[in-house]
Design a protein around this nucleic acid. Structure first.
Lengths: 236, 236
DNA sequence: CGTCCCTTTGATTTATGTCAAATTCGGTGG
DNA sequence: CCACCGAATTTGACATAAATCAAAGGGACG
């Protein structure tokens, strides 16, 4: 991670997010309590590159708070947002086993990002089957999500894409120990549009539609899902 | 690989495709010449499942001849072709480091598929840095392709998608030691359409357009790129 | 030789993009 | 704390690319 950011000094043992972090498993087996596993625990400002496309993989990034987008840029400069990452999620899992980051990572809001050294992770993965499974589980989920998005963007109309996008975010928030129907979309409409293969105008229109239907209550960055089952039914 | 198929008995040393196969590196370092590294070397009929979605990863599949599609199926049965694989390419690289195949693999024509045990590959990868790099190179290329396709399908119009698809196939054929402007598209128009997020009718129309423009000569499954630079310029 | 399936081509509809104006929001400085 | 500015968002009118529906043509295979 190369970026102007505030290093926050603390140990993993003291970290509030510890029990949602892979590092937790590593600390349990340590004789030296209070050991720091991470390289950097930093407060990062909105719109900062925390990974550049083409960077060598040397760590895993844990989003402690805030959110991040992954952006692929092609030779002619066109860009594709390939994924959003939220609090409790890891950036770099897909890249973990090969050498370079195929996408950049950019914060969508002021965030706290913890950079975790690869070595102890890999060592523990070799030693402990349950730990390896945890990593696999997260990686598998991300890869499945990737394929599912490809399907959605290729075959479904704009309304369903937005609806499924919202549903996915609620599900992920739940997985990340925030089981509410309240979403905070830190990214711009244009970012959502790029991610879903639409335009900002269409994203706006579809959100308005869901609003009118009473399925959601959207005001700017904040969205409440009024009736998640009705929404599920609507996009099915 | 679980499929009705003809096992072809032979050794890796005798294999004609040996020098394009990762296994070649393994044989060089063996004291026992003629060793078989693969599990199965089989002739597979068109439209056979050689991998099922959800299967545990236990081998790498090398396409010796023919071609294969990767298909992701979601809960409601909708399908997305996520990739095509051609002679000289490996299926399962993305899956290699996690446990289950997120997609099925289905032959697009009669093909010869060699199933390679994971263990010797992994062992050699740990031992030899150059060998590991070879794998990384192929995996990186596939992941980059994946992101690039996402960009193309989300942002480019039908004509460019088809044009870039053809260009990509020519490039890959070149990488696979077949440097010609002649393509054989074993997959149906519907498969191409699904892959590119279009309909079969649109694929057909766009190929006709390129035909009329004289950029390609397409007849059914066979396509000749008449002027690759003109085509590149057209889609840029 | 005939049937069936795939592909091509045509006519029409429609969803979403484009362009532009109006509105709201958030941040800044007085 | 409020007023102002610029940027993002919403909304509207319109254009258009691609989907849909349907028919005709062509190959492969029994």
């Amino acid at each position: 991670m190369r970026v102007d950011s505030l290093p926050l000094s603390s140990t993993c043992s003291e970290c509030g997010k510890r029990k949602y972090c892979l590092v937790d498993d590593l600390i349990e087996n340590r004789t030296t309590p209070g050991k720091r596993i991470f390289i950097l625990n930093t407060s990062v400002r909105v719109d900062s590159h925390i990974v550049y496309q083409g960077d060598k993989t040397k760590s895993l990034l844990f989003v402690k708070s805030g959110s991040v987008k992954s952006v692929y840029t092609d030779e002619s400069g066109d860009q594709q947002i390939t994924q959003f990452y939220f609090a409790g999620e890891y950036i770099g899992l897909i890249t973990l086993k090969h050498q370079v980051h195929a996408t950049a990572a950019i914060t969508l809001e002021n965030s706290i990002i913890c950079e975790i050294t690869l070595d102890p992770i890999v060592n523990e993965a070799v030693r402990s089957q349950p730990f390896l499974s945890k990593i696999h589980q997260r990686l598998d989920a991300e890869i499945r999500r990737q394929y599912h998005n490809q399907l959605i963007n290729n075959q479904y109309p704009a309304g369903k894409r937005i609806g499924m996008f919202l549903l996915e975010l609620v599900e992920r928030q739940k997985l990340n120990h925030n089981n509410t129907a309240l979403l905070r979309l830190a990214m711009s409409r244009a970012d959502i549009a790029n991610y879903l293969g639409l335009t900002a105008a269409t994203v706006s229109r579809m959100l308005s539609m869901y609003n009118v239907l009473g399925l959601i209550a959207a005001s700017k960055k904040n969205i409440r899902i009024n009736d998640i089952n009705a929404l599920r039914k609507f996009v099915a």
